[in-house]
Every structure is written in structure tokens, then in C-alpha cells.
């Protein structure tokens, strides 16, 4: 029995690392965007388009890292479109986000047809578990560099938002556009840049899906991960470090269903498969009432007004 528990825990650790990266990258991108006072619900489009572009680029050039870069750029272009349109008066940023989710997904499916079949070069993992003789530990600790990119980015964002002049400008823009303007900050430009950078990260999240895990391009690749990651930002209360925990939790609970079945515990697998959603909802219900939550939300955000 303890063996079985060890297996499930190992699977959840491995799952947390494997599955969390796209959630983390999208959530960090969204955090940056929302900190500037705008919400971009369309990062699912960036994720899917990024996944397709990364796979196609890796296939055509033979370099998966070039694919990662191309995915980021594609995500950036898409989000720059969002940022540019949202500066027009009377345009609703949530609606534009959903529009871009549609457009990004549509373009990815449209141009992605020829890349469903071929096998492209994929990203390698770093074997951090080589010290252990246990194959499961070794497997769980095979980590893709993009996971560390995500972790590093989280720390960097957290530090930047807190301690730098840029961070201050972004937070001010997000909390009160009027006072930012009074300080001579171009609110639209800050938001455009924050949204575009956020789109870049989300695109890279897509590259992780198609080039590492599960490591293939197909139209059902994402199953709404980008949309969920955007929601996780609210769960993580706009804090990049908490985004890491949220993504890890989400990844680990996602591994719960298959892991339990692999030790022969499979009654009610639909609910184990839905564990990430149930768990997130329960935690939100238990924690959201705190006064802190309302305090941490960027004041300009349409979704929390």
C-alpha cells in the first residue's frame, strides 16, 4: 500500500512539473497584462497558435528552440492586436479577448492542417533525477528547460513589479489610469507593451505543449488550458509567485486521475479527472472572502469592478 501511495505521489510530482508549465506561462503573461489594468481573455488563442507555429517551425527548420521563439513572436503579434484595439474608446477588453481567442484558434487550425501528420524535432529534458536509482523518481524529475524559464520568469516578474520603476509604472497604470496620466505616463502604451509581452509568454506556453508534452500538434491539443490559466490568475490574486503554486497544484491534481487508475483505483474517474476544477473551486470558495483579495486586485480591471 505504501508503495502505491509513493507511486501516486511520484506521479503527481511528475505531473505537476510536466503539466503545469503551459498553465504557468499563460498565467504569468496574464498577470502582467492584468497588472497594467487590462484583461486579455484570449490567451487560449495564443496558446493554440503558439503550439501550431512552434511545431511547424521546428518541423521546417529542424530547430525546436527556433520554434519556441516563433511561438512567442506569434503570441506577441496576436496580443499586440488586442492591445491596440483595446485602446480605442468604448471597446470592451473582455470581448476583444474572446474575439482573439477565436481568431488565434481559427488561424492555428487553418494553417496547422499540414502539420498534424509529420513528426517534428522536440525539446529535450534535463535529467535531474539521475542521482536516484528509482526509475519513477528519475522520470518524475525529467524536467524541461521551459519549466525553469517559467519559474525564473515568475521570480523576475514578482521582483520587477515590486521593486523597479517599470513595475511601479505598470502597477500604477493598473490601479488608477488617471493618476498614471497625471504622472505623464502613456497609459495606452504601457498596456500595449504589457499585453504584448504577456502574449509572448502565452505563445511559449503553447510551444511547450506541441514540442515537449504531450509533444505533438493536433486540434484537440489544448482542451481549454489557456482559458483556465487566465482564470487561475484571479485565483492566484495577481501574484506571480502564487501563479507558480496555482499551476503546480493544477498540474498535480490533473495527474491524480490517471495515477489512481494505474494503481487500480478507478471508480468515479470522471471526478478524479475533474479534480483540478473541483479543487480550484473549493479553494476559491474557502479563501476568496478575505478582505485581502479585493485589495490586491488592480483597480482598473473591468472584471473585478
Amino acid at each position: 500500500m505504501s508503495d502505491a501511495i509513493f507511486m501516486v505521489l511520484m506521479a503527481m510530482l511528475g505531473g505537476a512539473i510536466r503539466v503545469s508549465t503551459p498553465f504557468l506561462l499563460v498565467a504569468l503573461g496574464e498577470t502582467l497584462t492584468e497588472k497594467s489594468g487590462r484583461i486579455n481573455l484570449g490567451l487560449e488563442g495564443n496558446l493554440v497558435l503558439g503550439a501550431m507555429i512552434a511545431y511547424a517551425t521546428s518541423y521546417s527548420t529542424g530547430s525546436p528552440w527556433l520554434g519556441v521563439l516563433a511561438a512567442g513572436l506569434a503570441g506577441m503579434v496576436l496580443s499586440a492586436g488586442h492591445g491596440w484595439i483595446c485602446k480605442l474608446p468604448k471597446v470592451n477588453d473582455i470581448a476583444v479577448g474572446i474575439a482573439f481567442m477565436n481568431l488565434g484558434t481559427g488561424l492555428a487550425f487553418f494553417f496547422g492542417k499540414p502539420f498534424i501528420q509529420p513528426t517534428a524535432p522536440r525539446l529535450d529534458a534535463i535529467a535531474l533525477g539521475a542521482w536516484s536509482s528509482n526509475p519513477q523518481v528519475q522520470q518524475a524529475l525529467k524536467v524541461n528547460p521551459l519549466f525553469f524559464v517559467g519559474l525564473g520568469l515568475a521570480v523576475l516578474l514578482w521582483w520587477m513589479l515590486k521593486n523597479t520603476r517599470w513595475g511601479l509604472i505598470i502597477r500604477m497604470t493598473g490601479d488608477s489610469a488617471a493618476s498614471a496620466r497625471a504622472m505623464g505616463v502613456s497609459v495606452d502604451r504601457v498596456r500595449l507593451l504589457a499585453t504584448s509581452a504577456g502574449g509572448f509568454f502565452a505563445g511559449i506556453g503553447g510551444a511547450f505543449l506541441s514540442l515537449y508534452y504531450p509533444g505533438s500538434w493536433s486540434e484537440s491539443l489544448s482542451s481549454g488550458q489557456g482559458l483556465m490559466a487566465v482564470a487561475l490568475v484571479i485565483f492566484a490574486r495577481w501574484n506571480p509567485i502564487r501563479c507558480v503554486w496555482a499551476a503546480l497544484l493544477f498540474g498535480a491534481s490533473g495527474a491524480l486521475g490517471p495515477a489512481l487508475q494505474s494503481i487500480g483505483f478507478s471508480k468515479g474517474y470522471y471526478f478524479f479527472n475533474a479534480a483540478p476544477y473541483i479543487l480550484t473551486l473549493v479553494i476559491m470558495v474557502l479563501s476568496a472572502r478575505s478582505q485581502k483579495a479585493a485589495h490586491e486586485a488592480p483597480g482598473e480591471l473591468s472584471i473585478v469592478k
Partner: peptide, 9 residues
């Protein structure tokens, strides 16, 4: 609890 995320969940 934010309704966008709860309704999606």
C-alpha cells in the same frame, strides 16, 4: 468568488 472563473470551473 469571481463569477468568471467559478462559472468556467
Amino acid at each position: 468568488v469571481n463569477e468568471t472563473i467559478s462559472s468556467l470551473l
